[in-house]
């Protein structure tokens, strides 16, 4: 007993000393946990960039996985070392703030806008570049529903045939399958604002949205669910977005605005959401050349859709798809490097 206590005390003391030493060496607390090789002296030669690996997160959807290795491949070609880190797509912004991740190249306004903006407001993450690609997130239906509900994609037509979307738990109301609660889409508010005869059921993850869509299309069960573009689903299922009253900022804040003068949210989502690149606050100082390259990287909608389709439709592994993409688009990305 005594022996084990002593041992525990010694271990604890060692840990404390070590953590205190970490403090003295470095300005940023995060450096204490950085890999050993990162303390190698920075070369003062031509690129003033650090030789530390640039850490890029991997998330669980295909365009991001391919894109991450494209970004990484370009940076490696330019002489940087890159490390890929799997991570949760919400928690990653906290990690970027803590200096554990350098850049996120697919910040979707709809899904991650809140988590991203929180860190940008704190100042530890930079809103670094905006891609050419625009994102749209909206209620969506597969093409076969058009036969069952005439007048689509108009929202009033959808509301008129709400009953075909009804299920046991929604009673006579239509069932709208929304995205995960943490995406904060305000669907329930919209149903209320527009006085729709629908009930929102939130799926727990993107994967369950696709699973339902897949199951529904086997026997053409009517379904209306949350979807977005660019997305591999476009390549697999035909369908369209519901057209709601056009979005304006005032719709979310001013009850007077729109067809319902008492409630907000009586409109659709923005049809052109952003897709941004976010970087940690120290990234441009530590890797100035790399930062310039990342700033020039620009993804378009067709590029993202193709990356997703290579994996989800053609069944390639993400790294394979990235290698092929790099080989096919050399002129484009060489331009990002040379500027």
């Amino acid at each position: 007993m005594i022996r084990s206590k002593t041992l525990a005390a010694v271990l604890l003391a060692l840990a404390l000393v070590a953590s205190a030493c970490g403090d003295d060496d470095t300005a940023e607390p995060t450096e204490a946990a950085a890999p050993a090789e990162t303390t190698a002296p920075e070369e003062p030669a031509e690129p003033a960039d650090s030789s530390d690996p640039i850490r890029i997160p991997l998330h669980n959807w295909s365009s991001q996985l391919v894109g991450a290795e494209v970004v990484g491949g370009v940076l490696e070609d330019a002489g940087f070392s890159v490390e890929y880190v799997p991570s949760d797509s919400q928690v990653v912004y906290q990690s970027m703030c803590d200096g554990d991740i350098e850049l996120v190249h697919e910040v979707w306004e709809g899904a991650f806008g809140v988590a991203f903006q929180e860190q940008v407001d704190k100042g530890c993450v930079l809103d670094f570049a905006t891609h050419n690609a625009v994102t749209r997130e909206e209620w969506w239906y597969p093409a076969y529903v058009e036969d069952q509900c005439p007048g689509l994609p108009d929202w009033e037509a959808l509301n008129a045939c709400a009953s075909i979307f009804a299920t046991a738990e929604t009673g006579d109301k239509g069932r709208f399958l929304g995205g995960p609660v943490d995406w904060l889409k305000g669907d329930a508010e919209r149903v209320e604002g527009l006085g729709m005869n629908f009930e929102v059921v939130n799926a727990g993850s993107a994967a369950t949205l696709w699973a339902e869509l897949d199951a529904a299309s086997v026997d053409e069960t009517p379904i209306v669910l949350f979807n977005w573009t660019p997305n591999f689903i476009e390549a697999v299922y035909e369908g369209s977005f519901i057209e709601f009253p056009l979005f304006e900022d005032a719709c979310r804040t001013d009850p007077e605005w729109g067809i319902n003068s008492e409630l907000t949210h009586d409109c659709g989502n923005p049809a052109d959401g952003y897709l941004k690149t976010g970087v940690g606050q120290h990234f441009p100082d530590k890797w100035p050349t790399a930062a310039a390259i990342v700033k020039r990287m620009d993804f378009t909608n067709p590029m993202l859709a193709a990356m997703a389709a290579a994996v989800d439709v053609d069944g390639k592994e993400p790294s394979e798809a990235a290698t092929e993409w790099l080989a096919a688009n050399e002129d484009l990305w060489k331009g990002w490097i040379s500027g």
Binding site: P57, L58, N60, W61, S62, L65, Y84, V85, P86, S87, D88, V91, S95, D100, A206, A207, W210, A211, D214, F232, V311, D312, G315, P318
Partner: peptide, 20 residues
């Protein structure tokens, strides 16, 4: 894999996401 550990976790989630 949610907190950055590599291995079989990430590909598994990715396959599920694309319904494979």
């Amino acid at each position: 894999s949610f907190v950055g550990t590599r291995g079989l976790g990430l590909p598994l989630l990715n396959y599920l996401q694309s319904l494979r």
